[in-house]
C-alpha cells in the first residue's frame, strides 16, 4: 500500500465525539499516523506478518494502520469503553480484523513473547504527570522487536534516559520530529489550533524480562 493511500484511508476514520480530558484523548492525525506506521513497515519490517499491539488505541487509528500494512494480528488496548466502541466500528468499516481489549495499560499483564511490535500515541503526561512513561515502561516489557511511540520533543532527553536506563531498552532513536496539531477540543484550549513538536521514536527492547507477568 502506498503512503498516500494509507493516509487517505486513515483520514476517513471516525474520531472521538466527546474526548475525555483526564485520559488526554487527542486523535492521532492521519498525516502522522500514516508516516509512523509506513516507516515501521518499510524501513524496519516491524509490521507485516507480526503481532502488533496498539497501546491506548483510542479510536483505533494506529492499530488499523498496522492491520492495513499486513500485520498478522493486531491487539488494540484502551481503558475507555466509548473509544473502543468507535475503534470497533472503524475496524469493521475498513474490514480489518482487530482484537480489542479494555484494560488500563499500567495493569496490563501478558505472558510470554507473543507481541512483536507495540505502536502507541500515549497520553503526553501533561494532565497526569508520567502517564507517557507508564506506557513506555509496559511497552518495552511486552514487545520483543520494537516500540514506536510519540512524545513531546521538549521531553526528548528525559525519554531517552528513562528508556535506556530504567526500562532496559537497547536503543532509543528519534526517527522524525513532527508537528502534532491539536485541534481545539477542550474548553481550556485558548487558541483554535496548537502545533506541538512531537518526536517519533523507535525503541528496541532489551532481551530479558519479557512479559509483564511474575
Amino acid at each position: 500500500m502506498k503512503l498516500k493511500q494509507l493516509e487517505s484511508l486513515l483520514g476517513n476514520l471516525t474520531q472521538f465525539s466527546t474526548p475525555k480530558i483526564q485520559l488526554e484523548q487527542y486523535p492521532t492525525g492521519p498525516h502522522i499516523a500514516s508516516r509512523m506506521l509506513y516507516t515501521a513497515e518499510n524501513s524496519f519490517g516491524d509490521l507485516a506478518n507480526k503481532v502488533v499491539a496498539d497501546f491506548g488505541c483510542g479510536c483505533g487509528t494506529l492499530g488499523i494502520a498496522a492491520a492495513l500494512l499486513s500485520a498478522e494480528n493486531v491487539l488494540g488496548i484502551d481503558i475507555d469503553a466509548e473509544s473502543l466502541g468507535v475503534a470497533f466500528t472503524n475496524a469493521e468499516d475498513l474490514e480489518v480484523d482487530i482484537t480489542f481489549l479494555q484494560c488500563d495499560i499500567r495493569n496490563l499483564r501478558l505472558r510470554g513473547e507473543i507481541i512483536d511490535t507495540v505502536v502507541m500515541n500515549p497520553p503526553f503526561g501533561t494532565r497526569k504527570k508520567g502517564a507517557d512513561m507508564d506506557f513506555l515502561c509496559v511497552a518495552l516489557k511486552v514487545a520483543s522487536s520494537a516500540v514506536y511511540s510519540l512524545h513531546k520533543s521538549t521531553t526528548r532527553e528525559h525519554v531517552k534516559k528513562m528508556a535506556l536506563r530504567d526500562f532496559n531498552a537497547v536503543s532509543a532513536e528519534v526517527l522524525y520530529e513532527l508537528q502534532f496539531d491539536v485541534p481545539q477540543l477542550y474548553r481550556f484550549h485558548k487558541k483554535k489550533e496548537v502545533d506541538i513538536a512531537v518526536d517519533l521514536w523507535r525503541f528496541v527492547p532489551g532481551r530479558r524480562n519479557h512479559g509483564t507477568g511474575d
Partner: peptide, 21 residues
C-alpha cells in the same frame, strides 16, 4: 477475542501469582 490473545492474557489482580491461563 482470538485464542492468540487468550494465550498471553493473565489475570492482573494485585497479589495474584498464577493468573494464567
Amino acid at each position: 477475542m482470538r485464542l492468540l490473545t487468550h494465550n498471553m492474557l493473565s489475570s492482573n489482580i494485585k497479589g495474584v501469582s498464577s493468573g494464567f491461563p
